[in-house]
């Protein structure tokens, strides 16, 4: 596995350490779209320093896409995404103001809680016999497309872990409570395994829950396969999935730097070497309460660039680009179509 052992991150600091340098604004998709400092990590941190509550910050907290771009640029090492996730958690658990009816919550919250409380989760697949085996957590988007999942699994040559923590990933997104028993069983089942996860937010948390474990995003894992990598071209625009990249930034920035040197393709990185999200859906969008109507990010990635093909790590980015360009857009998994190459490299990953 090309991933080196990722060390546990240095203890992050909280909002009180924000010095107002504004470096996080430069990489924030909310800033690019709204140009309103209140809708930025710095705006939230400064407001919290002034005594703001989660309810005061509901708008920016729900607008944030949790892309994690702000985390690696913060010179004070503030866990800014963690701050937003904590605020979401507080919002989700907030009691309604006295005299007002209970706040409306999407039914999704209740369903999720019920699932996590009561659902029996399958154990890992039978072929995962050793704790040292690498396992794949595909997440709901890939599971929804069985043919695509099959192709991805063939390329990775990894067993799909039956419990891929999709409920936990959703709870992280929503700020919902995760029952301790559910979390413990999930983390215990992964202990000792190397992990490839499609969900960048889950990957971020796994870094904290399983310090010292080997983890990798789906994009980087696929791109490490010769069958895929050999089909990348210098004329490609390679679009990085930002959450997984920023969750393990110090390692991934070197990884992508080497990829660029090797292939010569352009990457969806800004001048600070931060992955520009191709879309930046807030909470309402992710809950399906708002339509994806904003192309700001995808247009910004393409500005001044004329690639012959766009290669994306994240399935969701295909739609974001197809809305605004005729340039062919493909997922990494679609590059590794040569079965000979797949067989040839089948064991290379482990």
């Amino acid at each position: 596995m090309p991933a080196t052992l990722a060390k546990a991150p240095a203890a992050p600091r909280d909002f009180a350490a924000c010095s107002g340098c504004s470096l996080c604004l430069l990489v924030c998709p909310m800033w690019r779209r709204h140009h309103d400092p209140r809708l930025t990590p710095e705006g939230m941190a400064k407001a919290l320093q002034c005594g703001a509550t989660a309810a005061d910050l509901a708008d920016p907290v729900e607008t944030c896409s949790l892309c994690g771009a702000c985390d690696p640029v913060c010179p004070e090492r503030i866990d800014l995404s963690g701050m937003v996730m904590e605020l979401r958690h507080q919002l989700a658990g907030a009691l309604p103001p006295p005299g007002l009816p209970p706040m409306e919550r999407p039914a999704l919250f209740a369903e999720l809680q019920a699932r996590m409380q009561h659902e029996e989760r399958p154990a890992g697949p039978s072929q995962v016999s050793l704790r040292s085996d690498t396992v794949f957590l595909p997440g709901p988007a890939l599971r929804a497309d069985p043919a695509f999942l099959e192709r991805t699994v063939a390329l990775l040559n990894l067993p799909v872990f039956a419990d891929d923590g999709d409920d936990i990933a959703l709870a992280l997104e929503l700020g919902a409570d995760i029952p301790q028993t559910r979390l413990q069983s999930f983390v215990d089942s992964l202990r000792g395994h190397s992990i490839v996860a499609a969900d960048g937010l889950l990957l971020r948390q796994l870094r904290r829950w399983l310090p010292g474990s080997k983890r990798m995003g789906l994009g980087a894992a696929l791109c490490s396969r010769a069958a895929v990598r050999s089909n990348l071209a210098a004329t490609d625009l390679y679009v990085i999935e930002p959450r997984a990249c920023h969750a393990d930034y110090e390692r991934m920035v070197i990884y992508y730097n080497n990829l660029q040197i090797e292939i010569g393709c352009s990457l969806s990185l800004d001048l600070q070497r931060i992955a520009i999200p191709a879309s930046a859906p807030g909470l309402r969008h992710r809950l399906g309460l708002a339509a994806a109507d904003d192309d700001t990010q995808a247009r910004w990635i393409l500005r001044g660039r004329t690639p012959e093909r766009i290669v994306v790590e994240d399935l969701a980015d295909i739609a974001a680009f197809r809305r605004i360009t005729d340039i062919p857009v493909v997922h990494l998994a679609e590059l590794g179509g040569d079965p000979t190459m797949i067989r040839k490299t089948a064991r290379a990953f482990n």
Binding site: S19, G20, C21, P37, R38, G43, K46, A47, Q49, C50, G51, A52, D56, L57
Partner: peptide, 17 residues
């Protein structure tokens, strides 16, 4: 125009602090 301690507090100081 935004008023209130949260909106204004964001601007309470500059880089000098």
């Amino acid at each position: 125009l935004a008023e209130g301690s949260v909106a204004c507090g964001v601007y309470a100081t500059d880089a000098g602090g």
